[in-house]
């Protein structure tokens, strides 16, 4: 029997290209970090011990250990950082949802000509560097910043409020930065909704707010989940905002990770922190995918 010869066609290339991309830029770094997380720190170049040792056999010997992961569990710092990150991500997600839902609803219900202009306003901040926008918040929130000066000028307060470098400013920065990621999927979901469903709800006896809770809200759950995941997942690992706007008590795993790598120079522990975070995030992603599949089943 002749085996099928493997031929490189345009089609194979097109299909292979994204896989090759993922292999090189995602899977390979992941493998390196995973390997690192089993190593021990050394004062050397590179600053970690070997995980595989060549003993002359067919396969190298595994000489790494799970010590780093054990260390993560023994030191409160990491567990607290994880928990705090998740707490901040959850609160931010809820805030984004509370602010973003009415906005998405308003845009979806706006007359056609307005709709694109309003959507444009949501997307517009992306045209400025993320970092610059976060710095702008420092200018607004600092002690002699815009907000305090306005409040002082109006005589509402007598001395500047401490708005910056605490959890409040972190929430402001996160909600501000991630709000579009909540609004856009929600808008996509709400704009798609058939007006006659609301009319039919009204016809069957629903006041407008009842029609909202019985029809609009349940039908927008896929949008709520998509938006929440798009906010929650990156916020858990957020580093820039807590670093710039947060205070000394703002403990987030992204910041801990940074410190391990660049302050402590403990690459293996930093890697295990990264791996643990990834595992932590995979769970909500899997839930998200599960709901997405369910959604595409019920709306073929």
């Amino acid at each position: 029997m002749k085996s099928m010869p493997f031929r490189i066609t345009g089609r194979t290339l097109a299909v292979a290209a994204p896989y090759v991309w993922l292999l090189i830029f995602f899977l390979a770094p992941f493998a390196i970090v995973l390997k690192l997380s089993f190593a021990e720190p050394l004062i050397a170049q590179p600053p970690y011990s070997a995980v595989f040792e060549w003993a002359g056999g067919l396969l190298p010997n595994f000489t790494g250990s799970l010590d780093n992961y054990q260390f993560l569990l023994t030191d409160d710092l990491y567990i607290n950082a994880y928990l705090n990150s998740i707490k901040i991500a959850m609160v931010s997600t809820i805030l984004c949802l509370l602010i973003g839902y009415p906005m998405a609803y308003g845009i979806a219900r706006a007359p056609g000509a307005w709709r694109n202009a309003l959507l444009m306003l949501v997307i517009l901040p992306f045209w400025t560097s993320f970092l610059i926008r976060v710095y702008a918040w420092i200018g607004i929130l600092k002690n002699n910043g815009i907000l305090n000066n306005v409040l002082l000028g109006l005589g509402i307060i007598d001395e500047p409020l401490q708005l910056l470098h605490n959890n409040f400013s972190v929430y402001i920065g996160i909600v501000y930065s991630y709000l579009p990621f909540m609004i856009l999927p929600l808008y996509a979901n709400l704009a798609r909704m058939d007006d006659s469903l609301l009319e039919s709800a009204a016809d069957l006896g629903c006041r407008p707010w009842q029609a909202f809770t019985r029809v609009t809200l349940p039908l927008s759950i896929p949008g709520i989940i998509a938006g929440s995941m798009l906010v929650f997942i990156p916020v858990v690992g957020e580093f820039v905002i807590p670093e710039l706007l947060g205070g000394p008590d703002t403990l987030m795993i992204g910041k801990v990770l940074w410190n391990e790598f660049f302050q402590n120079r403990d690459w293996p522990v930093a890697s295990s922190v990264a791996i643990a975070m990834l595992v932590l995030l995979v769970i909500p992603i899997v839930i998200f995918q599960h709901f997405q599949n369910k959604d595409s089943e019920s709306n073929p």
């Binding site: 006659s196 016809d203 029809v215 039908l219 709306n299």
Partner: peptide
């Protein structure tokens, strides 16, 4: 009188069935 207070019901051309509800729940909606 708003639609939700009228003793009138309508069958829509698009049917406007609630996609997230079963047939029974659709009928029981009102």
């Amino acid at each position: 009188v708003p639609p939700y207070e009228r003793p009138v019901n309508m069958m829509f051309q698009s049917y406007a069935l609630f996609p997230h509800m079963s047939v029974e729940d659709n009928i029981a909606f009102g």
